[in-house]
Structures are given as C-alpha cells and as structure tokens.
Simulated scan of single mutants.
Amino acid sequence: MFGDMMGMMSKIKEAKIKVDATKERLNSVLIDEASNDNKLKITLTANRAIKSIDIDDSLLEDKEQLEDYLILTLNKAIDKATKINEAELAAAAKDGMPNIPGMDMFK
C-alpha cells in the first residue's frame, strides 16, 4: 500500500515538474494576431504576456477607433493564447498523472 502511495506521489511530483516546464516553454511560444485590415498587429506569448503592438498611423487620428481595434484584436489574441496554454498544460498534466480511479479529469 505504501509502495503504491509513494509511487503515486512520485508521479504527481513528476507531473508538477512537467507542468512547470511547459509553463516556462510557453513564454517562448508567440501568437501573432492582426485586425482584419492589418492596421493593428499584436504579438503575445502563450502565457498571455504582450510582446509587441504595431499600430498603423491612420489609427492614431481617431481615439475611439483605436480603442475598438485594440479591444477586438487583443481579445482574439488572448483567446488563441488561452486555448494553446490550456491544451499544452492539460497534456503535460495528463502525461504525468498516475492512474487513480475517479480522477480522470485530464482525459
């Protein structure tokens, strides 16, 4: 019984190490998103840290339009990054988790 428990604890520790390594790796995964007309381009990491924003000069003339562009484009980029982040972390956690009956939340 204790051998099984120690084995499970070891597997859980391995899973945490894999998840932490995946989180670190996701800092270097870049997601590029642009407005439909390419007047605004945003790059962020899969951990949702903004790396760059490129704004066409024509957007600088209208504050409300720029705000709309930023909201729409940032939301699209964050949505993409979140999907990648969640899929990668779930895969890392699933690979390292022991097979515990009733604990199939990562499957």
Rank of each mutant, 00 (worst) to 15 (best):
I55E: 08
S10M: 13
E86W: 01
A93L: 14
K39H: 08
E14C: 00
E24S: 15
T43V: 10
K94Q: 15
S52K: 05
D54W: 00
F106W: 12
D54L: 07
L44T: 01
D37S: 01
I17W: 00
N38Y: 10
A90P: 08
A46I: 03
I17V: 10
A92E: 09
D56Y: 02
I78S: 02
A21F: 02
D54M: 04
K23C: 14
A21Q: 14
I31M: 03
L89H: 01
I55P: 09
D54N: 09
L40M: 04
K76Y: 11
T45L: 02
E64D: 14
S35M: 03
S28F: 03
S52Y: 04
M105F: 14
P101L: 07
L60G: 11
T22G: 05
G7N: 13
D68M: 10
L74Q: 14
I50P: 00
E64V: 12
L66K: 07
G7V: 03
I78R: 02
E61R: 07
Q65P: 00
D104G: 15
T82A: 05
N85F: 05
D95F: 02
A34D: 09
N75I: 12
A34Q: 10
D68E: 09
D79H: 14
M8T: 09
K23V: 13
S10C: 03
I50T: 08
D104C: 12
N36D: 15
A93P: 07
N27H: 15
K83E: 15
P101K: 08
D20S: 14
K11V: 00
Q65R: 06
A81V: 00
K51T: 07
D54R: 01
N99M: 08
M97W: 06
K94C: 04
G96H: 01
M97H: 04
P101M: 09
T82R: 03
T73A: 01
N99E: 15
S28R: 02
I31Q: 04
I31G: 11
E61K: 10
M6H: 01
D68R: 04
A90D: 14
I100S: 06
T22W: 03
E61H: 04
E14K: 02
S10A: 12
L44H: 00
T43F: 06
